[in-house]
Design a protein around this nucleic acid. Structure first.
Lengths: 234, 234
DNA sequence: ACGCTAATTAACCATCTGGTTCGTTACCAG
DNA sequence: CTGGTAACGAACCAGATGGTTAATTAGCGT
């Protein structure tokens, strides 16, 4: 392993494994996000790099493993962000709203990541399942939500019967949909879900929705319940 | 145009344009949903058909136009379903819950359609935008939601400040996420969002959430509002 | 009966694609 | 200063891929 000399002045290093790897990953991330797994071309990725296609196979072995490492790095970024979130000092209602807003902002700020997740779902998460690194990557967000939920219930302000994982799904779904499906939604309903001048509106809407759901005093919990509706098949 | 003889008994027709077209579209829908636009192969689609690759180009001209027709047909199916929904006789709260449940059930019942929408979003809805048929395909659901919303406000039960399109986005987001992202979500959080024994739970959760949001008497509308939080960039 | 055309088929093609072979070079240890 | 190895680059390859050419046939109108 090179001792990271990083000579401030002499920019033109010719042998720097770490930099070459990172360069490839950067370009690959953009290309996979832009064109999908099958759509992205190794030749094109190589061309946009300061190195060659051979180096991609030298460092990553195959297109699949390259994509897997792209995913690993992308997920590592959120985990890092989530670990920084600090809402312990807030009351449960404010804390949940703050967390929802952070999730909202994160999705807004990382559309490439959203695309990668969509792409990985098309492939039924086969790369995530094949990755040891991603298997042990727990989500700090879940634990934070769990703590806020406990506190809110202890204080009697949260009445909804949800656990942290499902609440995380609920919050994520709105944030994800807004970014991931903005193209088809915009084309079909003529509304740009990511228009800048509507962003604050949606951010508030998300928070309102989550708080209303958690604190809902039965207003909509039993009322208007459709009678024994079977979902279709048994 | 063949006068659609459709001889009940003699199944083995050899020249039937409509059937050949439909056959191709059926197989193409499954293949595109399974492998994505770029991942799907014309040769493979042809092989799974009772006809040949040449026929695909004879009827559809190109891979892109084939995919566009696949999308058009898929969207036509939902529009049809939506047009059948009848909640006029229900009170606003029940009507919204019923509509949310129908949306939920539709997503549950058509995972291939969900995948096609995800795929089309990766391609930034370019095929939808190129389709005249999809441009004029309005959504009956939006109008239904609009009417329920008006009625609910008139009765004073709905207090939230949303319009039909945004509410539709909110409802769809949860339904869509649950199906589309079940693989990555399951792999990362160890929870199968589409497990049969949890389906009723999520269906109820969706309804509760929507009703709580719409009827929320300010419980969470102003309370716990994070102070002047700027979303990032200006 | 028969000609016309929509419908169909087989074989073909240029190019692209993920992956590889093999030779070369920077750079650190000794 | 020199030998070994990690890092690198050019050219190559077999199979795949979207798309085409050209010849053929079913079946309806007349």
């Amino acid at each position: 392993m090179p001792s990271v000399p990083s000579p401030a002045g002499s920019a033109r290093r010719q042998r720097d494994a770490a930099r070459t790897r990172a360069d490839i990953l950067d370009v690959a991330t953009a290309e996979f996000a832009r064109l999908g797994y099958t759509g992205a071309r190794i030749d094109e990725i190589a061309a946009r790099t300061r190195t060659t296609k051979r180096m991609i196979y030298y460092y990553f072995g195959s297109k699949e493993r390259l994509f897997t490492e792209v995913l690993e790095r992308a997920y590592a970024v959120i985990r890092e962000q989530e670990q920084r979130l600090d809402v312990g000092h807030l009351d449960p209602v404010s804390a949940i709203r703050r967390l929802a807003e952070l999730t909202f902002d994160h999705h807004e700020a990382h559309p490439d990541f959203i695309r990668l997740v969509s792409i990985e779902n098309i492939h039924e998460a086969e790369h995530i399942r094949a990755s040891a690194a991603l298997a042990e990557l727990s989500s700090p967000a879940i634990e934070v939500i769990g703590r806020i939920l406990d506190e809110g219930r202890a204080q009697g302000v949260f009445t909804a019967d949800v656990d942290a994982v499902d609440l995380h799904a609920l919050i994520s779904s709105f944030c994800f949909f807004r970014v991931a499906n903005r193209h088809t939604f915009g084309a079909l309903f003529g509304r740009d879900l990511t228009a800048e001048d509507r962003r604050e509106e949606y951010r508030t809407m998300l928070g309102d929705m989550v708080i209303a759901y958690l604190t809902g005093k039965g207003a909509g919990r039993d009322a208007g319940r459709t009678a024994g509706q079977d979902a279709g098949r048994g």
